[in-house]
Design a protein around this nucleic acid. Structure first.
Lengths: 316, 316
DNA sequence: ACAATTATGCTCAAAGTGAGTATAAATAAG
DNA sequence: CTTATTTATACTCACTTTGAGCATAATTGT
C-alpha cells in the first residue's frame, strides 16, 4: 500500500449489493442475468464520488431507480481489493476495488425483477429439514481428500464444518465458502484458475466474479447480526404473525426453532406489540403483531439471541 | 454511484490503521505527530494495487517496516467514502476513499514509537472506576440542549447513552461519537465546518481528519468481537496470569469485572491451559496460563461473553 | 509473627433456556 | 353438526448460566 508513490494508479470502485428478501418460503436475492453468461450476478455499478455524497445514499437511490427495489436496511460488508483482477472485457486497465453491501427489502417493496433462492448457491447452509445430505455425501469426503495434501487446514475444517467435538456454527458461512473454494470444490475456483481439476460435482450454483463470496459474507453477517440487532424486521411486512416471524428467522439462520420458546423469546424482547387483529388461515387464527418504534433509523439495540438445540458434548 | 459514467474519476485509496495494544494499564494506540499540527493521527498510506496482492498483506508488511510493529490481528473495519473530502494540501484533485483497519499487537512486538492512551480521546467510554463524571456534568446536559432543536434524535440519544430505561451498551462507541459530533460537542465537527459554535469544553483530545471516528469504530468493533471470538489473546503475551487477562479485558470493554466469575468463565471456555509455572508479585503467586492452539490462523470460534453487572429494570 | 495483598475454591439464589404437555380456536372432512 | 386436523397459545419443569458473595490459601512487607 504505501512507500513513495511511483506513478498513476487508476482505480475504479465498484459497489456490489446483495439484496435479500424473504418471499414464498425462500430467502431470495436479486439476481441479474447477462446475455451469453450462464452464471448470474449481483447488481453492481461504479462509485462516482463527485456525484454522490455517501456510498449508502447513492446506493439506495441507484437501487430504487435501476433495480426497482426499496431498501429497508443497508449495511456495508467488506471492501475486496484482493484479486488484483481487472474487469473483464474492458479496454482500460484500471484496478477494480469492489465494496460489497448487504441490503434487506420487504417483499412488498421489492418490485418485479428476478429473484433467486439463496440456498440454491449454498445448499450446505440450509439445515431447516435436518443436516444436508451433501455434507456427508460429497463435501466432507472431498475435504478429507484435499486435507491429505493440505493438512495444515485440518483445524479450520474442523471448526468451520463442525466435526468431532466442534459445533456447526451457522455464522461461519464465509469460512466454509472459502475452504470449499481453496479445496477446489467450487466452480469459481476453477474459473479463477486456482485449481486445475474440475470439481467432481457442482456444489451450489456458481456466480460471476466474486459475487458468491459477497453473498456468503452477506449471509454470515446477517445471521450474526440477527442476534444483536433487530434487523429481522426489515424483512417483515408491517403486520405479521409470530409464526411468520419465526419462519423468516429460520430462513435466515438456516435451522428450525422450537415454536413455544420462540414466542417466549420474542414476547420478552419487547420488540413487538399486538395489534388486536388476527389472521385467518388454516387452524386457530393468530394474533397480528407489529414492530415497536415507528421511527425507522431510531432502532432499539439488542436482537433475538435465537439459538438452536441444546449443545451437548462440551469441549472442556 | 452508477448510471453512465461521464468522465475521469481519479480516486485515491488510503488505508488508515488503528493499532492497539494493552500496556502499563492503558489501552494504547499508535499515534503519529505532524509538524505544525497539534492533533495527532493514525498511520496511513496510499493503497497501490499494482504493488500488493491484498490490502491485509500489504498493510502488515508496511506496518512492520514503517511503523515498527508486528501485528497479531488485522481486521478491516469500514470504507469511508462519505465526506467527498480531498486530502488537504495536496495539489491534485483526487477523491480520497479511506479504508479503516483495526490491528492488535502484543506489547512485546510493538517496538518503540509513540503510543497514546485511547481513552484520552474517549473519556466517556472508560467506566472502570465507575460512571465517568463528564457524562452527567457535560455531555448529557449539552445533548439535552441540542435535542431542543433536534428532538428527532431523542431516541438515538436514549439508546446510545443509556438513559431512562435503556442500558449503557459498551459496544455503541461509534453511535455515541457520531451523536456528539452531530451535536457539535466534538472539536472535529467545528473544524469540518458542520457547526459554527465551538464546543463549550473539549470532549476528549481531537485527531486529524476522521481518525477519531476510525478509532471509535475500532473500539466498538473490538468490544463486540471479544464476545464471540478470542481476539483478546492477540493483546496478551505468551504466558499470562488470569489477573492480567482480566485487566486487558477490562481495558477493552471499559468496565470492571468480578474476579472469581471471570476466572470461572475463562476456565470453562477452554481457551487457556495452565503451564505449571507461577508468577511472583505481591500476594499469593498466580498460575501462568497460555492460550491453547499453537496454530495461529486456526483459531477457535466463540469468545468470552463477558458481561457487566446484572441488568435490572427490564423494559418489558 | 502478623498485616496486607493477591489468588483460588465454593455456595447460593435468581434468571435464562431446552424440551416438553396441555388447552384453545379455527377449518376441512365425514 | 360432529369429528379430525391444524395452528396458536399457555404453562411446567429440569437443568444451566450468571451475579454476587464468603471462605481459604499462599505469598510479601514490617
Amino acid at each position: 500500500m504505501p512507500m513513495s508513490d511511483s506513478g498513476n494508479t487508476d482505480i475504479l470502485i465498484d459497489i456490489s449489493t446483495a439484496i435479500l428478501r424473504a418471499h414464498e418460503g425462500e430467502l431470495q436475492f436479486r439476481a441479474l442475468e447477462d446475455a451469453g453468461e450462464s452464471a448470474k450476478r449481483l447488481p453492481f455499478g461504479p462509485f462516482m464520488p463527485h456525484r454522490h455524497r455517501t456510498m449508502e445514499i447513492s446506493l439506495r437511490q441507484w437501487v430504487r431507480e435501476q433495480v426497482g427495489v426499496d431498501l429497508a436496511h443497508v449495511e456495508q460488508l467488506y471492501t475486496f481489493a484482493d484479486q488484483g483482477r481487472y474487469r473483464s472485457g474492458e479496454s482500460d486497465e484500471r484496478h477494480v476495488v469492489s465494496v460489497g453491501y448487504l441490503a434487506l427489502a420487504r417483499a412488498e417493496d421489492a418490485g418485479g425483477g428476478a429473484w433467486d433462492n439463496l440456498y440454491r448457491h449454498f445448499p450446505w447452509e440450509d439445515w431447516r429439514t435436518g443436516r444436508p445430505d451433501v455434507l456427508d455425501a460429497v463435501i466432507l469426503p472431498a475435504l478429507d481428500n484435499w486435507l491429505g495434501r493440505h493438512d495444515h487446514a485440518a483445524e479450520r475444517v474442523r471448526l468451520a464444518f463442525g466435526r468431532n467435538e466442534a459445533q456447526w456454527d451457522e455464522e461461519f458461512v464465509l469460512e466454509r465458502y472459502e475452504l470449499l473454494y481453496q479445496a477446489g470444490l467450487i466452480e469459481e475456483a476453477v474459473r479463477d484458475g486456482r485449481i486445475t481439476s474440475p470439481p467432481q460435482e457442482a456444489l451450489g450454483a456458481p456466480m460471476q466474479l466474486d459475487h458468491r463470496r459477497i453473498l456468503a459474507t452477506a449471509l454470515g453477517r446477517l445471521r450474526g447480526k440477527l442476534k444483536y440487532r433487530p434487523v429481522l424486521f426489515d424483512l417483515m411486512p408491517d403486520r405479521f404473525t409470530l409464526r411468520a416471524l419465526q419462519e423468516t428467522t429460520e430462513l435466515v439462520i438456516g435451522t428450525s426453532l422450537h415454536k413455544q420458546n420462540f414466542r417466549r423469546l420474542v414476547e420478552k424482547s419487547g420488540f413487538v406489540e399486538a395489534t388486536g387483529e388476527t389472521s385467518r388461515t388454516r387452524g386457530r387464527p393468530a394474533e397480528l403483531f407489529r414492530f415497536r418504534h415507528g421511527n425507522r433509523a431510531d432502532r432499539p439495540l439488542a436482537g433475538l439471541r435465537v439459538s438452536g438445540g441444546r449443545k451437548t458434548g462440551r469441549t472442556s
